[in-house]
Amino acid sequence: DLSALRVEEVQNVINAMQKILECPICLELIKEPVSTKCDHIFCKFCMLKLLNQKKGPSQCPLCKNDITKRSLQESTRFSQLVEELLKIICAFQLDTGLEYANSYNFAKKENNSPEHLKDEVSIIQSMGYRNRAKRLLQSEPENPSLQETSLSVQLSNLGTVRTLRTKQRIQPQRTSVYIELGSDSSEDTVNKATYCSVGDQELLQITPQGTRDEISLDSAKKAACEFSETDVTNTEHHQPSNNDLNTTEKRAAERHPEKYQGSSVSNLHVEPCGTNTHASSLQHENSSLLLTKDRMNVEKAEF
């Protein structure tokens, strides 16, 4: 173990290094160091905050020279020094078990990766560091076993998940096959086929009936047209017969005018059967003409 005197000496050296690497504005270890034209180094955030307070150039807090945003430059070497100082402080805390008085939040800088452990060898070769390295080497064999167990647990979990997924996939297939086998029997399929065939026959029977009705309507229309044509021909046949009657009536009127007047009046009210309204109107006109002729003949006879 380190003596108290040596611990104090190391602590004083760390404090001196820390004062050199402090920012003059925030009085902390410089984060993202930036250098000016006057070779003074500050935190990048502190300098941008200072420049944004005034429009135009501002003055350096140490030498009062003008500073602009374009004049600022990043210093990589200074950032490396800060990183190495942080590593020294971490090693000091691990070796002594004491917390550094002016320690900052170094938890963000710590890294437990194997590459980081290899890099620590180049920091300080001390008894405390050696003991700590031995402890780490002793704890390393235990870690692979834990990793193997965790991997086995994960693989077993994956296997159970896969088996569950396969079961879920197989179950719908089985149910679907069961439904297909038990849903419709052979008799049901035959009945469905016969039902479809009967429906098709009914459709075939319905369509000819409609065509037959249309044919019957067409035949009825044709018969009505033929009947009207026969009526017209009958009226045409009746007209010459009426003319013959008129000639006979004229002759009778010349011989017996008194008797014919009474008979002509009675004939006005008689309509021949089986004739249309057109034929009756023609008869009325003929009878009126005959009456006028008879009157003329009677007057001539009187004179």
Results as ranks from 00 to 15, higher is better:
Leu86Thr: 14
Gly274Phe: 04
Thr230Met: 12
Cys90Pro: 02
Ser219Ile: 13
Cys43Leu: 00
Glu99Ser: 11
Ser266Lys: 07
Pro33Leu: 05
Lys87Pro: 04
Gly274Tyr: 14
Leu21Met: 08
Asp218Glu: 11
Val161Tyr: 15
Ser113Asp: 14
Gln209Asp: 09
Ser264Pro: 01
Leu2Gly: 03
Glu120His: 15
Arg130Asp: 08
Lys250Arg: 09
Val190Phe: 05
Pro257Glu: 13
Glu99Arg: 09
Ser35Pro: 01
Leu94Pro: 00
Ser145Asn: 15
Glu148His: 00
Phe42Ser: 00
Ser3Tyr: 04
Leu2Tyr: 15
Ser185His: 03
Tyr260Glu: 07
Leu164Asn: 00
Cys63Phe: 00
Val265Tyr: 08
Val265Gln: 13
Val298Gln: 14
Ser266Val: 09
Val270Ser: 04
Asp213Tyr: 07
Arg77Ala: 13
Pro272Val: 11
Phe106Ser: 10
Pro208Arg: 05
Leu158Asp: 07
Val121Thr: 05
Arg162Pro: 07
Val82Thr: 10
Ser287Asn: 09
Lys49Glu: 08
Gln18Pro: 01
Leu48Thr: 06
Phe45Arg: 15
Asp39Glu: 02
Leu5Glu: 14
Gln11Gly: 10
Arg251Asn: 12
Val270Gln: 15
Met296Asn: 03
Asn52Ala: 10
Glu74Gly: 04
Gly128Val: 03
Lys87Thr: 11
Ser287Cys: 06
Gln261Cys: 06
Ala252Val: 06
Arg6Leu: 03
Gln11Met: 04
Arg135Thr: 13
Leu146Pro: 08
Val177Ile: 04
Lys69Gly: 02
Tyr104Phe: 10
Pro257Ala: 04
Met17Thr: 00
Cys90Lys: 12
Ser103Arg: 08
Leu155Glu: 09
Cys90Gly: 12
Leu146Thr: 15
Ala4Pro: 09
Gln93Lys: 03
Glu83Ile: 02
Gln73Pro: 05
Asn157Leu: 04
Asp66Phe: 09
Leu21Phe: 15
Glu32Lys: 02
Ser145Phe: 07
Glu142Ala: 14
Arg165Met: 13
Ile30Tyr: 04
Pro57His: 09
Gln138Cys: 05
Arg135Cys: 08
Ala279Thr: 11
Arg165Lys: 06
Val232Ala: 04
Ser241Cys: 08
Lys222Ile: 12
Leu158Tyr: 10
Leu21His: 04
Ser3Gly: 08
Ala101Pro: 07
Leu146Asp: 00
Glu22Trp: 02
Gly159Tyr: 07
Leu158Asn: 09
Met17Ile: 03
Asn276Cys: 05
Gly210Arg: 03
Asn15Gly: 14
Asn297Thr: 14
Cys38Val: 00
Arg162Tyr: 04
Ser79Phe: 00
Thr207Gly: 12
Leu217Arg: 01
Pro57Val: 12
Lys44Ser: 05
Asp244Leu: 15
Gln80Gly: 04
Ser35Arg: 05
Asn131Thr: 13
Glu28Ile: 00
Pro144Glu: 11
Asn157Phe: 01
Lys221Gly: 10
Glu8Ala: 09
Ala193Ser: 13
Lys87Ile: 03
Val198Gly: 14
His269Asn: 08
Ile30Phe: 14
Ser139Arg: 11
Arg135Tyr: 07
Arg130Gln: 01
Ala16His: 05
Ile123Asn: 13
Glu142Lys: 10
Gln125His: 09
His256Tyr: 13
Lys134Ser: 09
Lys31Val: 07
Arg132Cys: 03
Arg130Leu: 09
Leu136Cys: 07
Ser197Cys: 00
Lys259Asp: 13
Asn52Leu: 05
Ser150Arg: 12
Thr36Asp: 03
Leu62Met: 12
Asn112Gly: 11
Thr233Pro: 09
Asp66Leu: 12
Leu137Asn: 09
Glu202Leu: 05
Ala16Glu: 14
Thr277Tyr: 06
Glu258His: 10
Glu74Arg: 12
Asn246Asp: 15
Ile123Val: 02
Ser216Thr: 05
Val161Asp: 09
His238Ile: 14
Arg251Cys: 15
Cys90Ala: 13
Val161Trp: 13
Phe78Leu: 15
Ser145Thr: 04
Glu254Arg: 10
Leu290Val: 11
Gln18Thr: 12
Ile30Asp: 02
Leu117Arg: 07
Val34Glu: 01
Lys222Asp: 14
Asp39Gly: 15
Asn12Ala: 04
Arg255Ala: 06
Gln154Tyr: 08
His256Ile: 14
Asn157Ile: 01
Leu81Met: 04
Pro141Phe: 12
Lys87Leu: 07
Thr175Met: 07
Val161Met: 13
Lys222Trp: 07
Pro272Gln: 05
Leu62Phe: 00
Lys221Ser: 02
Ile215Gly: 13
Val7Ile: 10
Leu29Trp: 08
Tyr100Met: 13
Asn112Ile: 12
Gln73Tyr: 15
Ala220Tyr: 15
Ser197Ala: 02
Ile206Ala: 07
Leu94Thr: 06
Gln53Glu: 05
Lys222Arg: 11
Lys222Met: 12
Ser156Arg: 03
Ser264Leu: 07
Pro257Cys: 14
Ser197Gly: 10
Thr247Lys: 12
Val82Met: 00
Met127Thr: 13
Arg251His: 08
Asp95Pro: 02
Gly56Phe: 03
Asn131Trp: 10
Thr233Ser: 06
Met47Val: 05
Glu84Pro: 15
Lys31Phe: 03
Lys19Glu: 02
Gly159Phe: 04
Pro61Thr: 02
Leu50Gly: 01
Leu151Ile: 08
Ser58Asn: 01
Phe42Ile: 02
Ser266Thr: 14
Leu217His: 04
Pro257Thr: 10
Phe106Trp: 02
Cys23Arg: 00
Gly159Glu: 10
Val34Tyr: 01
Ser79Trp: 01
Leu290Asn: 09
Arg255Cys: 12
Lys69Ser: 10
Gln53Asn: 07
Cys43Asn: 00
Ala4Asp: 08
Asp188Asn: 14
Leu158Pro: 12
Glu9Pro: 00
Leu289Asp: 14
Ser79Ala: 05
Ser288Asn: 10
Asn143Tyr: 09
Gly210Ile: 11
Asn102Tyr: 14
Val265Asp: 13
Val7Met: 03
Leu245Phe: 11
Glu120Asp: 09
Thr36Cys: 01
Arg174Val: 07
Thr36Tyr: 00
Leu50Pro: 01
Val82Ser: 12
Cys26Ser: 00
Pro144His: 11
Asn12Val: 06
